[in-house]
Design a protein around this nucleic acid. Structure first.
Length: 586
RNA sequence: GGUCCCGUAGCUCAGCAGGAUAGAGCAGCGGUUUCCUAAACCGAAGGUCACAGGUUCGAAUCCUGUCGGGACCA
């Protein structure tokens, strides 16, 4: 139940009636009509810009038009007041039962309240993490992982059919380096003194077990083979080990992908999906042999003006056409990426979201151009860039770990502070804003720590239910009693404000899903918690506002109903973020 | 040299699809505990929304340019 959507339609009906009565022209554009929370809740429960949004097309004065719309709205039994303010806003005051119905809706279906049909089952592919399988995940990967996962949750909740996908870069030069690094550990496991790890190989300890496993499996057999023979073997074992480690790291954050798409599979055996993709684009005139203009400014030393196989990215808004083949004739990464995104399209996705690190920002235009090209303009790619994470402890930058090589692993951070703080803090910021993550601060149990603040609100709700159970000798009101509660006793402004906030949840979900911005859920939950904590403390001064009233079961049940709805929204929102909603804090 | 992101209170950041008097938190100031968890709350104070133009009935929000910070590319 989304009262904003409900009243958007209601305002639309009012406009239709005005058109039917000849007061405004028929068929004018009403797409800009919004019903939203008023800036100040003293104005009312809902506000609409309808009069201003259509005034121009209707060739009417916004205030006069607003008067007409307001007049229509006042005939609605759900509306107790509609007034025109400012340049033509209409502020709507709802009958109390409308907000009470929202509370009842949340109680009736705690997990389903806020769910939206917005996506209408449309298939969306969300690709996130896609870290190279060459080592453990670091904190930066973690941000993309948490963001992508929460976005996928959010879209699913908003009614999309979401596929969570990981692109495994198991075909490039890095995995050959990985194989050579693992081979060194293999020789080490056989008893050779390998000394310090040479420059250019991965030094991390995490390859030691891979070397040991290879030694246990093959004995010295690999040692005397030429590299061309052992490399594919070692590479495959090492990649599997790295992916197992990465999956494990992700599981510690409760992140699980449905599809792991292998880059190597694009060219495995007889298949050459990359060549196929290039041929198809060439047939459509989007690939040609040509020369690129030299870059402006200072010429790089290795610049050579030569003919290359190029994709016409400029036809789709990119700045320059992009090479598909390297000088040695092998495919560029970009060529593989085109084939990969073509595979998404062939699998039925016309809506794709890629979550990348900000360092790949320069890649966005060409990838969008490619998706546009392979889908004939029917598919859309949104790229969400996650900015860097700066890891701090008490304001001081955290030193690199030796274990991993040269970075702090995600696992170390999760092990230290726990899943919930990591997830919440990474979502309590826009994805394109840099993030300072302070290990000391996220463990603080105080209002300075938003994770704690929101979880505490949920725990407080649970606590009230426990208190009520004691107060009424174990007769905790069941869901039937709550559903039947007489909510007319909820008359304090703080209680009504809490109802209003609860009523906003479906709208927040839809807006966040539409914008691909899960952080809006996190901020909403913080504000919702704040309203609740305020109401709670009001009960300290005014005993009549306490949730549990030993001498008044009727109003206690009504307040428990309100809290039940609140608890449902907190749990639902936290669930979307992938953060737990505890019943007590320890 | 070019592309992308960012610039909002002393600090860290929100600001929903262009709307009303631009909001939180922190820090600082002043209050609230015989009372459901003070692990919390309330109040006052704090702003040239980087700058200059443009579009609009209306711009922090959209467009152009300049300056500043960051990421990346050849």
């Amino acid at each position: 139940m989304n009262i904003f959507g409900l009243f958007e339609r209601r305002v639309g009906e009012a406009l239709d009636r005005l058109a039917a009565a000849g007061r405004i022209p028929a068929g004018i554009d009403t797409s800009k009509v919004l019903v939203e929370p008023p800036r100040d809740s003293t104005h009312g429960d809902l506000a609409t810009n309808a009069a201003m949004a259509v005034a121009k097309a209707a060739k009417a004065n916004p205030r006069q038009l607003a008067d007409l719309i307001a007049e229509d709205l006042r005939t609605d039994p759900r509306v107790v007041g509609a007034s025109v303010a400012g340049p033509g806003f209409i502020n709507i005051r709802l009958a109390p039962h409308v907000l009470h119905d929202v509370v009842r809706a949340a109680l009736a279906d705690p997990a389903g309240y806020g769910r939206s049909g917005q996506g209408a089952g449309q298939a969306v592919n969300v690709e996130y993490v896609s870290a190279n399988p060459t080592g453990p995940m670091h904190v930066g990967h973690g941000r993309g992982a948490v963001f992508g996962d929460a976005l996928a949750n959010l879209l699913a909740f908003a009614g999309y059919d979401v596929t969570r996908e990981y692109y495994v870069n198991d075909a490039g030069a890095q995995v050959d380096v990985l194989a050579r690094s693992a081979f060194l550990r293999y020789r080490e496991a056989l008893g050779e003194a390998v000394g310090s790890i040479p420059e250019g190989l991965y030094p991390g300890d995490y390859l030691v077990p891979v070397g040991q496993a290879l030694a246990a499996q093959h004995g010295p057999a690999l040692r005397d083979m030429p590299e061309a023979e052992w490399l594919p073997l070692v590479r495959s074992v090492a990649i599997d080990a790295m992916m197992a480690m990465i999956r494990d790291d992700l599981a510690s954050l409760d992140i699980r992908h449905a599809v792991f798409f292998s880059e190597r599979s694009l060219t495995k055996g007889e298949a050459d999906k990359i060549g196929e993709t290039i041929a198809e684009l060439r047939a459509r005139g989007l690939v040609y042999e040509g020369r690129l203009p030299p870059p402006k400014g200072q010429l790089p030393e290795d610049w050579e003006d030569r003919e290359q196989t190029l994709f016409r990215a400029t036809e789709f808004g990119d700045d320059v056409d992009r090479p598909l083949l390297k000088s040695d004739g092998s495919y560029t990464y970009f060529a593989a990426d085109i084939a990969y995104h073509r595979s998404k399209f062939e699998r039925g996705f016309t809506s794709m979201i890629d979550v990348w690190g900000a360092d790949h920002g320069g890649y966005v235009k060409r990838m969008q151009a490619a998706v546009n090209a392979v889908s004939g303009g029917t598919a859309k790619l949104d790229v969400k860039l996650c900015q860097l994470v700066k890891l701090l402890r008490g304001g001081e930058p955290v030193k690199m770990s030796k274990r991993a090589g040269d970075f702090v692993t995600l696992r170390e951070v999760v092990d230290e502070v726990g899943r919930d703080p990591v997830r919440f803090m990474m979502l309590y910021r826009k994805n394109d804003a840099p993030l300072d993550f302070d290990l000391a601060k996220v463990l603080e149990q105080s209002k300075d720590n938003p994770v704690f603040y929101v979880q505490y609100a949920h725990a407080r709700c649970a606590s009230v239910f426990r208190q009520a159970g004691e107060a009424f000798a174990g007769r905790v009101p069941g869901s039937d009693a709550l559903a039947a509660a007489d909510l007319s006793v909820l008359t304090d402004e703080a209680e009504i404000e809490l109802e209003r906030r609860i009523a906003q949840y479906p709208r927040v979900v839809e807006a966040a899903a539409l914008a691909h911005e899960p952080h809006r859920i996190a901020f909403y939950l913080y504000e919702l918690s704040s309203v609740f904590h305020g109401l709670w403390n009001k009960g300290k001064d005014l005993p009549q506002l306490r949730f549990v009233k030993h001498d008044d079961e009727r109003s206690t049940v009504a307040r428990l109903a309100l809290l039940g709805a609140l608890k449902a929204v907190l749990a639902s929102g936290l669930g979307t973020l992938g953060v737990s909603a505890p019943d007590e804090m320890r």
